Amino acid sequence: MLVLNEAETRAALPWSDLIAALRTMFRDGCEMPVRHHHDVAVLGEAAATLLLMPAWQPGSYIGVKMVSVFPGNTGRDLPAIHGSYLLSSGKTGQLLAIIDGAELTARRTAAASALAADYLAAGDAHHMLMVGAGRLSQNLIEAHASVRPISQVTIWARDIRKAEATAAQIDLPGISVSVATDIEAAARTADIISCATLSLKPLIRGDWLKAGAHLDLVGAFKPGMRESDDRAVERATLFVDTRDGALSEGGDLVQPLRAGLITPGSIRADLAELTGGRHPGRTQPGEITLFKSVGAALEDLAGAILAFERSPHG
């Protein structure tokens, strides 16, 4: 049985191959039940949460991501979130691999945004604004740079020290990296704006978006969170990773949907429709596009299969 740690998982999922694997999986589809969400009592502490996210291709592979969230771990100097991905044979049920869940999630999330950008961002997009400086930020920058000719990256975060630390870690040929203190000024000039935050209030204003801009919204994964304002949703052509997820979980669309500013029909296409050729994506040079991602189990499955088949044991 194959076991991949964080570094090995990263090495097994190069951007070009991972984006191609997601493109194929979204196009062809798989079985993807609703994820399981269970409260787990912890004596003397806040309850923990167990998340189970299964997906499978009949006769091929079965996968499930298991994530545990233990709030009490902060007092033990341990991570609150732990995750692993279990990949099994779809023919025999034999367990084939255990893959680092956090690294798999981070890379497949960034790859899904890059896949969307390949359909939605301007072909000559070269300036990327990264809003947020957490774990996902470097992945999102690298993934977008693999599908568009990015030559300039600007990073903005509430804590400028975190933005500076992330900027120092990025070493991509032909790309200059800087830190912004004025988010509005940076947003007004960016071709691609990617947001990966836990913000409860909008950070990006629709009036800041220039003609032809692409807005990638990855954070704000709960209905009460928000990374963009109503004006952004009104100005942009809207796309999502999956309709069910984005219209029920992501606050950037859930809130304007509840307010009656948009309807489910306002979503032009999801990634299955884009990869399947049922929608062309960007249709005009000056069009502003918005992609909302909340994640899907099929992305984990695609990444896990790739990592397994690329390994010597695959």
Rank of each mutant, 00 (worst) to 15 (best):
N5G: 11
A7Y: 04
R10A: 12
A11Y: 05
L13V: 02
P14N: 02
W15M: 06
R23T: 05
M25C: 13
M25Y: 08
F26W: 06
C30N: 09
E31S: 11
M32C: 13
H36N: 07
H37Y: 14
D39Y: 12
D39N: 13
L43I: 14
L50M: 01
L52E: 05
M53R: 03
W56R: 07
G59F: 07
Y61A: 05
G63L: 00
K65F: 05
M66I: 13
R76S: 06
R76K: 12
P79F: 06
Y85E: 00
S89L: 08
E103F: 10
A106H: 09
R108V: 00
A116N: 01
M128W: 12
G132R: 09
R135Y: 15
L140P: 12
E142C: 05
A145L: 02
W156Y: 11
K162L: 09
K162A: 11
A168Y: 03
L172V: 11
S176K: 10
A186R: 05
A186F: 00
A187P: 11
D191G: 08
A196G: 14
A196S: 15
S199E: 08
P202T: 01
G206D: 06
A211H: 07
A213G: 03
D216I: 02
D216H: 01
V218Y: 10
E227K: 02
D229F: 02
R243S: 10
D252K: 03
T283H: 13
E287Y: 12
I288C: 13
F291R: 07
S293I: 10
G303K: 05
I305R: 11
L306D: 12
G314W: 04
